[in-house]
């Protein structure tokens, strides 16, 4: 029993390390952003920063969205998520989103900020706190993921915002991540690491047989209680051309103790610190 728990904590430590690394990267790159930098530049900066620190594989390559692209305005096809030549201007909001794999552990994080003050995005970030609490509490109550998704939706509407995570592939608010086997050669398909996609596909197959899905969406395939594992949760708010999100790992276990059944992998993250400072 102790070995199992020990193994668990050791695994979690691995995930926590890579998540911290990714957030450090986001903060470092965000600090280097200046007017005129393009989304492609920002994506490259993230990639290089992480490569230098030993990241060899990705769940997905880093994304960067500037201006109204943070709210996915007029996004019709998934190709539009990829970084473009859009240049950053003073006051513009931006979102950095990256999913590095480090020593076989995957993280998937989202970091929202703006170049100078942006009161609207500021407000969105403040209002995301309620979503973080709502999601955790609902998962601890073992409510079906589809219902939690709808609750998040309702909270967004009440706050006056639009749900922008529905623009993601399959409209997911979260997806499972796991360990990835390290290979010398790690090809990618449309920006997604093939090893990670393989893991996701295997999960999807298992889940299909057992009645759960590694994708957490509004659709019927998510009509099941939270499945144990690590979930990269990414509620994404949009408000008239400004978007904000956070993305971090939620640990779900099969423990009967509510506290232990679900918890955020790390509470020492930029957005969480920011809420704590505001209080």
């Amino acid at each position: 029993m102790t070995t199992a728990a020990g193994e668990l904590t050791q695994r979690l430590r691995g995930f926590r390390t890579v998540q911290r690394l990714a957030y450090e990267c986001a903060e470092a790159v965000a600090a280097r952003l200046e007017p005129g930098v393009t989304e492609r530049d920002a994506a490259r900066m993230q990639r290089e920063w992480l490569r230098e620190r030993g990241v060899r594989d990705w769940f997905h390559l880093p994304f960067a969205w500037f201006g109204d692209r943070t709210a996915f305005v007029n996004f019709r096809v998934p190709l539009q998520f990829f970084p473009t030549g859009r240049r950053l201007e003073p006051g513009m909001p931006f979102i950095l989103d990256m999913a590095p794999v480090y020593e076989g552990y995957t993280a998937d994080i989202g970091y929202s900020g703006s170049l100078g003050a942006n009161p609207v995005q500021n407000r969105l970030m403040d209002d995301l706190e309620a979503h973080r609490e709502l999601i955790l509490n609902a998962v601890r109550e073992r409510r079906p993921l589809r219902e939690i998704y709808e609750d998040v939706d309702r909270l967004m509407v009440r706050q006056g915002y639009a749900n922008r995570h529905r623009a993601y592939p399959f409209g997911v608010i979260a997806h499972k991540v796991g360990r990835v086997r390290e290979r010398r050669w790690s090809p990618r398909l449309f920006g997604f690491g093939t090893q990670s996609l393989k893991g996701l596909a295997a999960d999807a197959l298992h889940g299909h047989r057992e009645g759960w899905s590694p994708l957490w969406s509004r659709y019927r395939f998510s009509d099941h209680p939270p499945h144990p594992g690590l979930w990269a949760v990414e509620p994404h708010l949009g408000f008239r051309g400004t978007g904000a999100k956070f993305e971090e790992l939620l640990v779900v276990t099969d423990s009967t103790d509510p506290e232990q059944s679900a918890f955020w992998l790390d509470d020492d993250l930029p957005h969480v610190r920011r809420w704590a400072e505001d209080k």
Binding site: P119, V120, R123, R158, Q159, G160, F239, R240
Partner: peptide, 13 residues
């Protein structure tokens, strides 16, 4: 509460 929220965000934009 909802009206207040609308007014608040309206000022913001």
């Amino acid at each position: 509460e909802a009206a207040l929220r609308t007014a608040e965000l309206a000022r913001l934009i």
